[in-house]
Amino acid sequence: MSRLFGIIHRDLRLALRQGSDSVMVVTFFVLTVVLFPFGIGPEANILERVSSGVLWVTALLASMLSLDRLFQADYEDGSLELLALTPTPLELLVLGKVAAHWLTTGLPLMVAAPVLAVLLNMNADGFVTLLLTMLLGTPTLSLIGAMGAALVLGARRGGVLLSLLVLPLYIPVLIFGVGAIDAAVQGLPVHAHLLILGGMLLAALALTPWATAAALRQALE
């Protein structure tokens, strides 16, 4: 357990000292969302209708933005190899890095989302659900994304490839995240959507670290 926290601590400190990764992600999120009223037009009811989808799609793209750096920097300077040589299981290392990734991207996105929801005129009934879906959905995105990031280590044009691998697997999270918010805005029960999102998070938590660790092992061979 202390090893897990050690890795999280290390990654957080690196993110803090090298700076600006989470600031970049949130800035991208805000700027892209702000583009939509210009693109679609400022009518309040149209913005209200599309707000949940716009927020989720842009949050998903923003969380993908910092993925290719998740293992790349450590892979290039060799510290990933050293981390893999320690007695800590690689799966645990992956969980630690994913947790740090979520703390530096998913959490800031979650904090920024309600402010942007106000800008997009979202119905106030949807706010709590928006936060809950983000809370359940963004860690799933980080977990799946870490797998993609590990797979493309050392590949040519890894960044573009990463989006091709990861985006199809993101679609279920997007569907149920937006579905829950839309249900909440219309006054329908959101229970089922949230349970499915939670189920996807648990499944991803149980399965993706193995796949990510396997991908890292073959990258380090």
């Binding site: 797998m147 797979l151 493309v152 590949a155 490839l161 796949a211 991908a215 990258a219």
Partner: peptide, 25 residues
């Protein structure tokens, strides 16, 4: 994605392994 990943590495055996993990996921 599978087809792209297989051909993305200079070493064909690395591409095959990465793509195998993706296929299972």
């Amino acid at each position: 994605g599978h087809m792209a990943l297989i051909n993305a590495f200079d070493d064909p055996s690395r591409g095959a392994k990465a793509a195998a993990i993706l296929a299972l996921a």
